[in-house]
């Protein structure tokens, strides 16, 4: 009983401050009550502490450090001497004015859009397909999760072998079918490499899209389809007027998360082409990695990394708004 009377009170205090909640008519609360309130406050904070500590340590510190680093001349010597001269926006100017930046940015956009469209369309088609009841449905669906379970380094090594020009499995297959005479240089042609890399990334991303969208489809009540079919909405019409509107919140979550995951993809590209040939698969992520860990220009690498963070942040905000709307609905 005391708990229920207490709670709204403390809530009011938190929101409006002590003066407002203690109107002129109310008596000053007994000291016992005040200590209890204070203790409750402390406990509320205590529950927050682990999360706050965790966030500061593992999210706050690296982000702040990365931002600071991008304004410094941070080199290998910095690690030993601790000296990192402040250089203002020099790193940003160097990175953004480099001739490689526009290439990387364009590749990042193409890679992300291509991957997302491919993953989503195939993932959705498969999700709808698995809605039907047929034998081996469960087994097939779990087999489709395999790409998700493999370490990315393994996937990229295997795909690198499959896509090899001379002895790759894909070219052998196409050759045996008589479709091609000479091997297609999937990974070594400047016009094909990005397409090949996007293809591999689609293969990796399908399970994620399939799983989430399948879950979303399961949530749609059967009655809607029954009612719809009475009104003549079947097949495409049912999809257009029932499935799609009901699935919309899930779709926006899948897309936005997909974009954020895809923007930062690094290992697949490094494993398949290392950004080549002639930078045709170089993205902002791979370029930032190269700057920091191969050329030891940690400041410039951090600056480019921050550019990527800002792009991701835009989509993260979109995600938050989308998910808030989903909750409101």
């Amino acid at each position: 009983m005391s708990l229920t009377t207490d709670l709204p009170h403390s809530k009011g205090q938190a929101a409006g401050g002590a003066v407002k909640s203690h109107g002129p008519g109310t008596e000053t609360p007994a000291p016992r009550r005040r200590t209890r309130q204070r203790r409750e406050r402390i406990f509320q904070w205590l529950f927050l502490v682990p999360a706050v500590v965790y966030m500061t340590l593992f999210f706050g510190y690296p982000v702040v450090k990365n931002v600071v680093m991008s304004f410094q001349e941070y080199t290998t010597s910095t690690f030993f001497t601790g000296e990192a001269p402040w250089v203002g926006f020099t790193n940003y100017v160097t990175v953004l004015s480099s001739s490689l930046f526009s290439t990387s940015l364009l590749n990042t956009v193409l890679f992300t859009m291509g991957s997302i469209v491919g993953q989503f369309v195939i993932g959705l088609a498969l999700a709808i397909f698995f809605q039907r009841k047929f034998p081996l449905n469960g087994i097939l669906r779990s087999l489709l999760l395999l790409p998700w379970l493999l370490p990315l380094i393994v996937s990229s090594a295997v795909w690198r072998w499959i896509l090899d020009k001379d002895s790759g499995a894909l070219n052998r297959f196409l050759g045996d079918l008589g479709i091609i005479d000479t091997g297609i240089p999937w990974l070594t042609s400047t016009s094909l490499a990005l397409i090949a890399v996007v293809g591999v990334n689609i293969w990796i991303g399908i399970p994620f899209n399939l799983t989430i969208l399948y879950g979303g489809l399961q949530e749609i009540p059967d009655e809607l389809y029954e009612a719809g079919s009475l009104d003549g909405a079947t097949g495409w019409k049912a999809f257009r007027h029932i499935t799609w509107p009901m699935l919309r919140p899930v779709v926006s979550v899948v897309l936005v998360l997909g974009v954020v995951y895809t923007l930062k993809v690094l290992d697949i590209i490094l494993g398949l082409t290392n950004g080549g040939p002639a930078n045709s698969t170089q993205t902002i992520a791979t370029q930032s990695y190269n700057l920091s860990f191969h050329e030891f220009k940690f400041g410039e690498g951090a600056a480019l990394g921050n550019v990527l963070v800002i792009i991701s942040l835009v989509f993260a905000v979109l995600y938050l708004r989308a998910s808030r709307r989903a909750v409101d609905e």
């Binding site: 020009k165 001379d166 240089p185 070594t188 042609s189 290392n274 080549g276 040939p277």
Partner: peptide, 15 residues
Amino acid sequence: TDLVKSGSVSSSALN
């Protein structure tokens, strides 16, 4: 470049 262009070296050398 000549070696790759002429096909004496596979263009896979790029990777």
